[in-house]
C-alpha cells in the first residue's frame, strides 16, 4: 500500500526536522560540556529567537527592503539580540550558582525556562505569531520525493554553522580556552584563561545558534507560539544526549538521527507514538551507552 518513494520522502522530512534539533542541540551540548548544566531554558531561547526573527522581519519588510534582504537581516538580528538572553541568563541565573552543587542550578534553569515562556506569553499573547513574508512553497521533485528550497536551506545552514563551530572550537585561541575550561575550570583560570568570559561566550554562541534555528523554523512552518520551546528543547536535549553530550559532531548526528527516527515512527507506526519512540530511544541509549553515540566515557569527578 505504501509506495517506496514514501520512505525517501520520510527521510527528507526527518532530516529537515533533525537539522533543527541539531542546531538547538549544539547549545545544550556546549553548555553541558563546559559547566555540566542542563540548560533547560535553552528551548525557550530558541522560541524567543523565532519571535525576534518574526518581529524584525516584519519591521524590515515594512521598511521596504526586498524579501531576501529582510530574511537575512531578520536572522542576523535574531541571532544578535537573542544571544543577549543567553548572556544575561548566564550572568544572573547560573553564574552565582556555579559552586552550589548540582540541584540548585538545575532548578534555577527550570525556573528560568518558565520565566522566559511566560514573559513571551505576557509580551506577545497566546496567539500564534505568523511570519510576515509567506515563503513560497517552491521546490523541486526528485523522482517521487518533493523537496522545498527552504528545507535544503535549513539543512545547509545547519551544516555550515556546525562545521564553522567545530572549526572555531578546534582551531582558534578562544576555542582552545573553551576546551581548556571544559576540562578543568580551576586549572584553566590558573593558566590565565578568563573562565567567566569563556563561559559567557559559550552561552552567547549557543543562544545565537538556537535563534538561527528558531528563525529558520518559523520561516519554514510560518508560525510560532510561546509554548514551542518546551517540546523542541526536550527533543534537542535528547539529540545532544544521543550524540554524546559535550560533543559537537555528536549533536549533529544525534539531531539528524532523532529527526529521521521520529519521522519514520510517525509515518509507519502512527503520529501519536512518535514522541514515545523518541523517549524510549533516549532511555535505551542512556542505559546501554550513557556516553552517547560519539561521546567518550568520562568517569564521574570525585
Amino acid at each position: 500500500m505504501i509506495p517506496g518513494g514514501a520512505l525517501l520522502q520520510q527521510i527528507v522530512n526527518g532530516l529537515t526536522v533533525g537539522a533543527v534539533y541539531a542546531l538547538i542541540a549544539l547549545g545544550y551540548t556546549m553548555v553541558y560540556g563546559i559547566i555540566e548544566l542542563i540548560n533547560f531554558a535553552h528551548g525557550e531561547i530558541y522560541m524567543i529567537g523565532a519571535y525576534v526573527g518574526t518581529i524584525s522581519a516584519g519591521v524590515f519588510l515594512a521598511a521596504g527592503l526586498p524579501v531576501w534582504a529582510s530574511l537575512v537581516l531578520a536572522i542576523a538580528t535574531a541571532a544578535a539580540l537573542t544571544s543577549l538572553y543567553g548572556l544575561s541568563a548566564e550572568r544572573l541565573a547560573y553564574r552565582p550558582l556555579r559552586k552550589a552543587g548540582r540541584l540548585a542550578p538545575l532548578i534555577s534553569a527550570l525556573g528560568l525556562s518558565i520565566f522566559f515562556q511566560q514573559y513571551v506569553f505576557l509580551a506577545q499573547g497566546a496567539k500564534d505569531k505568523v511570519f510576515p513574508a509567506a515563503i513560497t512553497s517552491g521546490g523541486f521533485v526528485l523522482g517521487s520525493v518533493r523537496v522545498a528550497y527552504i528545507q535544503v536551506a535549513i539543512i545547509l545552514v545547519a551544516a555550515a554553522l556546525m562545521v564553522s563551530l567545530q572549526a572555531f572550537v578546534g582551531k582558534t585561541r578562544m576555542g582552545r580556552a573553551m576546551r581548556c575550561t571544559a576540562q578543568d575550570p580551576v586549572m584553566a583560570s590558573l593558566v590565565g584563561v578568563p573562565v567567566n568570559r569563556v563561559i559567557a561566550l559559550t552561552f552567547v554562541i549557543g543562544s545565537a545558534l538556537a535563534a538561527v534555528a528558531g528563525v529558520l523554523v518559523v520561516m519554514y512552518y510560518g508560525k510560532v507560539n510561546y509554548l514551542a520551546g518546551y517540546a523542541a528543547g526536550l527533543k534537542a536535549f535528547t539529540a545532544a544526549v544521543l550524540g554524546g553530550i559535550g560533543n559537537i559532531p555528536g549533536a549533529m548526528l544525534g539531531g539528524l538521527f532523532l529527526g529521521v527516527v521520529e519521522s519514520l515512527a510517525a509515518g509507519y507506526i502512527g503520529g501519536e507514538y512518535k514522541d514515545v519512540v523518541a523517549f524510549v530511544i533516549l532511555v535505551l541509549v542512556l542505559i546501554v551507552r550513557p556516553q552517547g553515540l560519539l561521546g567518550v566515557r568520562v568517569p564521574d569527578k570525585i
Binding site: I2, A6, Q9, N13, V17, Y230, G267, D275
Partner: peptide
C-alpha cells in the same frame, strides 16, 4: 491518522496519507 498538537511538522503523517 493522528497528529501531535504540539508539533509544527506533520509531513510524516501526511506522507503516509498521500500514499492512499
Amino acid at each position: 491518522g493522528v497528529i501531535v498538537k504540539e508539533d509544527q511538522d506533520h509531513t510524516s503523517v501526511l506522507t503516509t496519507l498521500k500514499g492512499y
